[in-house]
Design a protein around this nucleic acid. Sequence first.
RNA 1: GCCCCGGUAGCUCAGUCGGAUAGAGCAGUUGCCUUCUAAGCAACGGGUCGGGGGUUCGAUUCCCUCCCGGGGCACCA
Length: 576
Amino acid sequence: MRSRLHERFQSALRELLAEAGSQAPPPDFSLEVPRNPEHGDFACNAALLLAKPLERPPRQVAEQLIARLTAGEGVIARAEVAGPGFINVWLRDERWQDLLRSVLTQGRRYGRSEQAAGAQVQVEFVSANPTGPLTLGHGRQAVLGDCIARALEAVGSRVTREYYFNNGGRQMRVLGESVRARYLEQLGRAAPPPDTGGDAETPWPESIDGLPVVFPRDGYQGDYIGEIAADLVARDGDALTEEPGEGVFREVAEQQVFGEIRKTLDALGIHFDVYSNEMALYQEGKLEETLADLRMRDLVYESEGAVWLRATALSLGRDRVLIKKTGEPTYLLPDIAYHREKFRRGFDRIIDVQGADHIEQFPFVRAAVGALGCPVEKLELVMNQFVTLTRGGEQVKQSKRRATYVTVDELLGEVGPDVFRFFMVQRKAEGHLDFDLDLAKDTDWKKNPAYYVQYAHARSCGVERKAREQGVAIPDAASADGSLLSLPEELEILKKLGEFPDVVARAAEAREPHHLAYWVRELAGLWNPYLQDGVRHRVLSDDPALTSARLGLALAVRTVLANALECLGISAPEQM
RNA sequence: GCCCCGGUAGCUCAGUCGGAUAGAGCAGUUGCCUUCUAAGCAACGGGUCGGGGGUUCGAUUCCCUCCCGGGGCACCA
């Protein structure tokens, strides 16, 4: 609806400019749905922008534009100049009523488009290393990344969802050592680690009561480590006590932890197309290759026994270590190699979704792959801030170190995936998110926005069920007739439905799926009261024509609610 | 100290590449209504858009500066 009107404005602008002998291209004007309905269905600021190049007062320009817009047949019912020179436009009611038919015709496709048809996009997200269960921050990112992917798919992109993890470095070794220590403890061959209260100054004894302390100082304290160890004891008894290093334990732990992560993601309805890892890059020689190519461009030097990236030559603030003096790479080198592979795989667009604690690294990766000749304008970063959890009106303390953080699994157990997803996606990514557990657990549909939206859908289905029971014919795309939908609230709902394709497009382009969550809440906020009223208007009434029209509206709203929820990966139940 | 992100109603937050009288939900007050699924509708109250300066027809939005909160500034991930 908006895009057609936008074209009309654009051609009117061109005419006006040409007439005045101006070579200037039409300015980038706005055409928006105004907050205040008294300002029309759409409001346009074009005349204000054109006033200067045309050297005429804005209101006069507006008049001339209106004359051109309203000439000939009309989707436009009326247009008027307002304020300093805005043009407010009202469309004919029929234009909105026709939406009923077009929504029902398009069905599940309504809202989708081909704006980005065929674009190959990679979205990399979560990418948590398999050292423990997913935390709320990961959960937020999982939902965010998946919703971005869904929005992109809705505008025609072909999306590869990808999960990359580091499994070659020190953290995985510590993971293995932690499991080994618990294993030995359970067999009575090692002492449990002392509680230092997280204080790095407290000494770490080599043994307690004659038993060695094997648990590493920076080991993983979560219960899941002990569980993995217990599995090993049950499976192999004490056969592993003589294992030389942490290797066996590390492999088992990685497999187990990663399996759990995938289960969690499954429960969230998130499925990755590709899992990449650091070890594969090693095995394929990608690190050496990348290092050699960087060296060729004089971006590598050695100092203090380490190998450095000369990032200052790429106008970054400082140089950074690529290979530690221990001979082990930092995460920077594999990250650079990995991103280079992304470019080689031919994506049109590469989107990294990363937590706020990771963004420091991004400029270095981008600069490095840029220096290696990759078209970095295709690479973009979506950053997401942390999640805090509020329970009983108080913030829940989270400490990764002491493993007292709340996991995605725990929360899913309390609220289920639909509520979890809705709450995680409803805030813009770059802002902090306060997860209000009391509200999330509240099953009162009126209060809990996730249920409120789902309930709007379920109710519409209920209306249809009731209609069938009463033997009322269910309208379809061919028989639906919106022309009887003339109550203000009905037109308002139709206009809302008309916004949906624009909302999807915006969510996709801006990588901001929270707009969808807001918008669908607004639609439900119009529809639930409409159904609730039942006095001023009933869907099922004595008037067959009106019943058919309103039933058509119910079907259309239900379709759009379902489509919007689909974009958010949330189910649209037919009953609640 | 430097970098990134926030600061909008009592609370949680939207706010369209600069637009008109700044919005929603929840919470509060008042009146009405009694339902196609679990009550809804209407009205009211509530704001120096963190402070100050600048840019211009116009700034919550852009620039500068300061304050507050979160995160980051490793040969940790």
